[in-house]
């Protein structure tokens, strides 16, 4: 190592690497078009600070913001048979999978984790819309079963964030069979007397809505999320008339009795903590962002929650 490499090169490099400054420092709000600084947007959980529009957030980012101190542990999900139907459309299914894995950095369309929110131990699962539209195939089914089993083992509530275009066509009938499969998982949870809270995020449609997303003890949706079985385009083609403003959006479903609440993402954590602690008969939570509990403490609260349930 000489002074050239140490001092001169970095300086030179920094001049050239300036071009590599990410060009996504600013994002445009999908709704109002306001340019938002990436850090500001991230701090606000991808909710536009100008108009309140909720943009996509990955399960990992969501969990970092949700759990105390951003600390959570992943729950292992058993791998299903890859490409069970040897499906091929214009591309082969494994190729589509690889492309999705590369672009998201995730293995599949659902992430299952455990951790504490407001010192309340929970198991959480979140569907990743950026991974093949969050579509429900064998893996997502396995993930929900794993989440339910883990929740039952630890005697914790399950919070599920849904987001999907529907079933994964490339798994054909097996994707459809995730409707009964995940329903069994939800039933196991309910029979164990544990809360199952569904947070419906944009968009939640098709077979996902018609199974685990509509079977929660409590249904909370993010504002303006599209929630439906058949999409608006399909319906317009069928009935040949224009649909009313806001049709199948969260607020519309709230009005029609399908949801308990519509809650902004930025208030979701506190609301979940409040609801869960009441359902479990725990004392009110200390509001605000709590640091991650240290190891022994975690065990302690864990034990307390277990006693109460």
């Amino acid at each position: 190592m000489n002074w050239i490499t140490n001092y001169v090169r970095p300086t030179i490099n920094s001049i050239f690497s300036r071009r590599e400054v990410p060009d996504n420092l600013w994002s445009k709000c999908d709704e109002c078009g306001t340019m938002l600084f990436h850090r500001e947007l991230k701090d606000n959980l991808n909710v536009c600070t100008h108009c309140g529009h909720h943009m996509h957030i990955t399960p990992r980012d969501r969990f970092k913001a949700l759990f105390d101190g951003g600390v959570f542990t992943e729950v292992a999900v058993p791998d299903p048979v890859a490409d069970p139907l040897q499906f091929r459309d214009q591309k082969k299914y494994p190729e589509r999978m690889k492309a999705a894995q590369k672009s998201t950095g995730e293995k599949e369309a659902m992430l299952v984790v455990e951790g504490e929110i407001g010192r309340t131990p929970i198991v959480a699962a979140a569907q990743d819309f950026s991974f093949m539209g969050g579509s429900m195939g064998m893996y997502v089914g396995n993930a929900i079963i794993a989440a339910a089993e883990r929740a039952i083992k630890l005697k914790r509530p399950l919070v599920l964030f849904s987001a999907a275009g529907g079933a994964r066509m490339q798994e054909g009938i097996l994707s459809l069979m995730q409707m009964p499969r995940t329903t069994v998982a939800v039933q196991m949870l309910k029979e164990a007397g544990l809360p199952y809270i569904v947070v419906l995020t944009h968009p939640t449609t098709g077979g996902v809505t018609a199974s685990y997303a509509m079977l929660g003890d409590v249904h909370i949706a993010e504002p303006n999320a599209l929630i439906c079985f058949a999409g608006p385009r399909v319906i317009e083609q069928t009935i040949r008339e224009k649909l009313p403003e806001g049709f199948q959006r969260a607020e519309y479903l709230l009005d029609h009795g399908m949801l308990d609440r519509v809650t902004p993402r930025t208030e979701m954590r506190d609301e979940l903590v409040t609801i869960i602690r009441m359902l479990l008969g725990l004392t009110p939570a200390v509001q605000g962002d709590l640091p991650a509990p240290v190891a022994e403490e975690a065990d302690d609260t864990d034990a307390k929650a277990v006693e109460k349930t």
Binding site: T209, M214, L215, F229, I235, H256
Partner: peptide, 18 residues
């Protein structure tokens, strides 16, 4: 796939039947 069917909770009805 109709307007009324969605308003009256098509998804929920299917989920409950299963």
């Amino acid at each position: 796939p109709g307007k009324g069917a969605e308003e009256r909770g098509q998804s929920e009805a299917i989920a409950r039947s299963t």
